[in-house]
Each structure stands twice: as structure tokens, then as C-alpha cells.
Amino acid sequence: MSEERLNGILVTNIQRMCFHDGPGIRTVVFLKGCTIHCPWCSNPENLSYNIEKYEKDGNTSYYGRYYTEPELHDELLKDRLFWINDGGITFSGGEPLSHIPTIKNLLKSLKTEGIDLAVETSLFVDENMIDVSLCFFDHFIVDIKILDEQICNRVLGGDCSLYKRNVKRVVDSGKDLVFRIPCNNEYTLTDKNSRSIIEFLKQYRDIPVQIFAIHDLGAEKYRSLGIEMWRHEKVKEKSLLDFKDELTMNGISTEIIKL
């Protein structure tokens, strides 16, 4: 295994000036590699933990690049001036918490410098990763997807009971937390799953929820990787509004967002 791979942090993209991934203006770093595989994933390039070659417009290129820790540190801090009152860095992916071993020192140095840190996570990771992440992240944006044990395992490849335990762990830490639900008719908005989500959220009524319709913005990336994109029904605005109403009626503060 190369030294670069041993010590490096595998990143697919660094997106600056993001408005929807935590408080203020944020720089979002996408780490390559995920513990689950959602059919509707809009970042298919972040599923594998390896660099992937792709072709676009006849040109060959690669998804993923190893950064050394100081290199990534400097790159992520380029917009520091724009985080005067709020704002900071958001780790996304893939599943960023599965990268804790390689990013732990980076997180430590960013935290020491007083940088506000957020993470977008599905929480399908070992509990000890959660414990480490709680030391560094100020904000958690946590997905709620499929809550039926079997379907979750079959479709996402995830352990739902581990997920639920991890959610409780983060909630109990008192950290700033937002739930985010990717809505699709096939899995997350089915009658059964939406009922499960509402039941699940009743125990966390203080925590705000954001819902959004899944989109096809990843189509180009699927094409470049030669992977067929999952076909899904378009989610009607009314379905989102109805779901929002249901959540709200159950005392769960919900907003519809566009990503």
C-alpha cells in the first residue's frame, strides 16, 4: 500500500460557499467511501473507498485524490474570512464518520483553531467513531432513511439498530442536530416507512427536521462511471407537503428544503 494511501485523506471534492450544509457560509469537503449504498445516492463517486477512473467528453479523469493533512488543512481554510459570525467546514461524503481514523488529527487541529465543524452523516458507523466525532463536531446533520431492519439491511446494507443507537448517542450528547430525510416514493415515503419515521421522531420532538425530494443531479456522474442510475418516480410537491403536515401535526418541526 502506498504511503500516500496510508497517510492521505481521500477527497473527491471541496465545494466552497455552500449555504445548506450547516450554519453560515460553509466549505464542504466530500470524503470518498461510504458504509451504505442508497439506490438514490446523488454522489455515486463517493461510494467506493478507492480512486476511480472515469471518462467524460473523451477525457480521462479520476474521482478522488489523496491530500496530506497540512495540504487539506490549508485548502479548507481558504474561506476562513467568510466565517466571521458563523460558518465553517462541513464534512460530507460518502460517510465522513467512517474516515475518522484518517481525519482525526485534522479535526483536532481545526478545532484547536476554533473552526466551526459540521458533519453530514448517515450514522451507519461503529459506535466508537461516534464517540470520537462528538469530541470535534459542533453540528450533526443526520439522515433518516429506511427504518425497517430488514429492508434497511437489504437495500442500504446498513444495520438499523446500530443506526438508532448512534442517533441516541448524538442526541444525548446535546450537540446541535438536524435530521434530514431524502424523500422518495419507493422507500422513504412508503406508508410503512413514513409511519416508522414519525414514530421514531416522536422521541426527538425538539430536533428540527428537513425534508427534500431526491433529484437526478448525479446522472452525469453515474454516466461517467458507467453505472446505470436507479430510476425513480418523481416526488410530487403535494407528497412533500402532506408529509410535512403529518410531521408537524405530530409536533415535529419540519421544513422543506431544496438541495
Binding site: Q15, M17, K78
Partner: peptide
Amino acid sequence: NNGYTEIVN
């Protein structure tokens, strides 16, 4: 550009 912040910088 990678966000307007980049070109402002």
C-alpha cells in the same frame, strides 16, 4: 469557480 468566495479571494 469553486464558489464566489474563490474569485473574491
